[in-house]
Design a protein around this nucleic acid. Structure first.
Length: 769
DNA sequence: AGGGCCACTTAGCATTGTAGTA
DNA sequence: TACTACAATGCTAAGTGGCCCT
């Protein structure tokens, strides 16, 4: 198989198909399909169900597990568990930290990038490509297992580029480059202690971390100082005039119960407050907040009337909209102040933007899709729940007066500044840096380098899995077929999930028999596989693709003697698959295929759609189309904007108007020409020219509008943002912009330009992914 | 091997900001 | 000046995958 992929037949969705054609196994009939189609939510509703029984979901494989496990309210248990284990964990963590400080494993340097080579991390291959990290020495270390000519050819380009940059850096950053660190590296700094601060501030905005060397050990930073998170504002009780009614009678609620009631009241317009699970979960958690008196009175949610509360909130938001300019300005300034104070941290001598410095406010949990925990109370996070992470020698953030942090730790092996345990799933939430930060950017860059390394060996890997389709061992065949899907269809890996804890969604390795259908013949195609399942965020994946005969036969084999709810790949999971991938290429995991295929698709598409003579809007349309091809491949869908039809109409009206304008202008030109013919004077000649220009302008405008219409129509249900942000090597786009003279602003907005600053700075027009 | 924990990326939708228009 | 439509940003849920322990 060559790099060529049959992505074309990937189909985003099938319109209304979801509900009708789905064969509804009893146990899945209550699935909520979040596929996007033309229907209004209400119409979709008929495919959603009201009641759900997750308990009989279990497959054989999971049944045993289930017995050992609680099936009820995990949240509290999680909390307990955490408490119990805290001590244990702490010990472990401390050991971890200590050991990492003490026995610094020796490091191996590769092209400016230094890898951890502690025993567990020793690999036979360099992890990064030549030229990954700029460095004067640029010494190629070990020989690669599967070099190809590209390996020889490409770095040359990259190298010169880097050398250039390296020189530039010398000038620009001489004074600023080094951080005061706990353990100085080869170069010295120290003079900066005095003058560094000011210079630094000026340079801060354009700090080019990508021209610096990365840290040599596993540590993520050497110095970290921040002010801690911003907590959600405290609850403000309802004014007395806003009543809650139970069974028709007004009832004053205690503050805690009232607060939770307001969460429900705020969502009243949302359709999911009508769902049984949502209501059940909410009511259960609400009752926990009630006084015993309230508890005994309020026994039926159906008798609760929140509508006055609901109207109150609506009025509030209306009032907010109606606020005067000055008031709005004031709020804006206050936000800005908060941002300035809490929105930044100091990491290794650079001021970096924090991604989410506000703690999530309490509210009702709404998972995506058919989530068993929807409606549960997401509790308020207090300082006592927060673990702070910062350097020992930094000014530690102060907890709000009268409170304490849960813990302050100094772990530079992680990137987060603060964390807490959330009560719905018992998972940990983090406060981390913005994507524009060094720490995120380096990781992102590295991700694309890994994908580029896959490019070099993908043929070998493809050949291998094709061979494996013939293996004597079932597990190998399953692994090979799964990998084929991941590669060809860009499916996600598909980790196992705990049943009943989350919506029932799957990825490749967790596909079940019921998710595929085999058609030996379909229309004029042979060996067609139909996929129909809910993926991440309960987004439907529906696709029919012809596969190779051997794959088809294998699938038939995997399906033998299985029930619909059985795993398709019963001898496979993501851990097995990733272990195998790791052997094929250092750093290779299932998700790398998604990155690789997305980026390579963009590059190919851009090449194919290239048309030098196109106008700027046409070029951008081409870009968007290439981007769209990727979004379709990755199944990035969105709900059609609510105002879609209308906005299309508006656009059409504009187009019609423009066309009228055009014909009018043409008439005028004709008249002007006639006039000129008659008079032959300069004035009339000028008039003709003027008219010509006007027509040209109008034509351009019309074209622009038409392009816009096409683009919008094609984009109706497809979200481009996700792939642009997470899967497409930004250097491809930057190079394309440079090559075709398209301003980068047409492709990336401000945030995106900040995130991809490294790529914008370093990619030249001949960059090859 | 498998489970649990943890850290981090990826995801769509809701809210907010803003530019263009009436 | 208000409105409106779209873009940008914010929010947080839901994935992936590494590591450690049993």
């Amino acid at each position: 198989m060559s790099g060529e992929h049959g992505h074309g037949n990937s189909q985003v969705n099938s319109g209304s198909k979801g509900g009708d054609t789905h064969k509804h196994k009893d146990k899945h009939k209550d699935k909520e399909y979040r596929h996007k189609d033309h229907k209004k939510d209400k119409e979709r509703e008929k495919f959603k169900h009201s009641n759900s029984e997750h308990k009989d979901h279990s497959e054989k494989k999971h049944r045993d597990k289930e017995k050992l496990k609680h099936s009820d309210s995990s949240a509290d248990k999680h909390r307990e568990k955490h408490k119990e284990k805290d001590k244990d964990k702490e010990k472990r963590r401390e050991e971890k930290i200590r050991s990492s400080h003490v026995d610094k494993p020796k490091k191996e340097k590769e092209n400016g990038y230094v890898r951890d080579t502690s025993p567990s991390a020793i690999k036979s291959e360099p992890e990064e490509d030549n030229g990954f990290y700029p460095s004067p020495q640029h010494n190629k270390t070990s020989k690669r297992e599967y070099d190809d000519e590209e390996f020889v050819y490409k770095p040359k380009k990259v190298k010169t580029e880097h050398d250039k940059k390296a020189k530039k850096r010398k000038h620009e950053y001489e004074d600023d480059e080094e951080d005061e660190d706990i353990k100085p590296k080869k170069k010295t700094k120290d003079k900066k202690g005095t003058e560094g601060k000011k210079a630094k501030k000026e340079e801060e905005e354009k700090w080019k971390w990508w021209e610096e060397e990365r840290s040599t050990d596993g540590s993520k930073w050497r110095f970290l100082e921040h002010k801690g998170p911003v907590f959600a504002p405290p609850y403000e009780p309802m004014p007395d005039k806003v009543k809650f009614y139970y069974d028709g009678k007004p009832m004053k609620l205690s503050a805690p119960a009232e607060e939770v009631a307001t969460f429900f009241a705020k969502m009243l317009d949302h359709e999911y407050t009508t769902k049984d699970i949502f209501r059940k979960n909410f009511f259960k958690d609400w009752r926990k907040e009630m006084t015993s008196e309230e508890k005994s009175k309020i026994t039926d949610l159906n008798k609760c009337n929140f509508s006055e509360m609901n109207e109150y909130f609506k009025a509030q938001s209306e009032a907010r909209k109606q606020m005067s300019k000055e008031e709005k300005q004031k709020i804006k300034e206050e936000n800005e102040r908060l941002l300035q104070e809490y929105g930044f941290c100091l990491m290794d001598n650079h001021k970096e933007r924090i991604g989410n410095f506000r703690i999530e406010p309490p509210g009702l949990f709404r998972g995506r899709g058919d989530h068993p925990k929807m409606g549960m109370l997401k509790r308020r996070i207090r300082p006592e729940d927060i673990i702070i992470n910062c350097s020992k020698d930094s000014k530690h953030p102060k907890p709000p007066p009268g409170t304490k942090w849960k813990e302050v730790r100094h772990d530079n092996k992680v990137t987060w500044l603060a964390s807490w345990t959330e009560n719905i799933q018992g998972s940990i939430k983090y406060i981390m840096l913005n994507p524009s930060s060094r720490i995120k950017g380096e990781k992102d860059w590295q991700k694309y380098e890994t994908a580029r390394r896959l490019k070099k060996c993908v043929d070998r890997i493809r050949n291998q899995y094709r061979d494996d389709w013939k293996s004597k061992e079932m597990r190998i065949r399953q692994r090979a077929v799964a990998l084929y899907f991941i590669d060809k269809l860009a499916l996600r890996a598909g980790n196992e999930k705990e049943e009943g804890e989350t919506a029932d969604t799957v990825g490749c390795c967790s596909l079940r028999v019921e998710h595929i259908k085999l058609y030996p013949k379909m229309d004029d195609q042979e060996y067609v596989v139909e996929f129909d399942f809910l993926g991440k965020d309960s987004i439907r994946y529906y696709n029919k693709i012809p596969v190779e005969k051997r794959v088809f036969k294998n699938l038939q084999l995997f399906l033998e003697n299985k029930q619909p709810e059985d795993d398709l790949f019963d001898r496979l999971n993501t851990s097995i698959l990733n272990k195998h991938l790791q052997e094929l290429m250092d750093g290779l995991t299932a998700k790398v295929f998604r990155t690789y295929n997305a980026s390579i698709t963009l590059q190919q598409q851009l090449k194919e759609l290239a048309c030098p003579d196109d106008s700027l809007p046409a070029k951008i349309l081409s870009y968007n189309r290439a981007n769209r091809a990727v979004a379709i491949l990755c199944n990035h869908q969105r709900a059609p904007p609510k105002t879609f039809e209308k906005s299309m109409q508006n656009l059409q009206t504009k187009i019609d108007e423009k066309q009228n304008q055009l014909s009018a202008a043409r008439k005028q030109l004709k008249a002007a020409k006639a006039d000129h013919k008659a008079s032959h004077d300069d004035k009339s000649k000028k008039a003709v020219e003027l008219k010509r220009k006007a027509i040209q302008r109008i034509e351009e405008q019309l074209m622009k509008l038409q392009v816009q219409a096409t683009d919008r129509e094609e984009n109706k249900q497809i979200a481009l943002g996700t792939s642009k942000l997470n899967y497409l090597d930004p250097r491809i786009s930057v190079a394309w912009c440079k090559k075709w003279d398209v301003p980068i602003e047409k492709i990336y907005n401000k945030t995106q330009r900040e995130k991809f600053a490294w790529a914008i700075d370093m990619a030249e027009k001949d960059y090859e992914f």
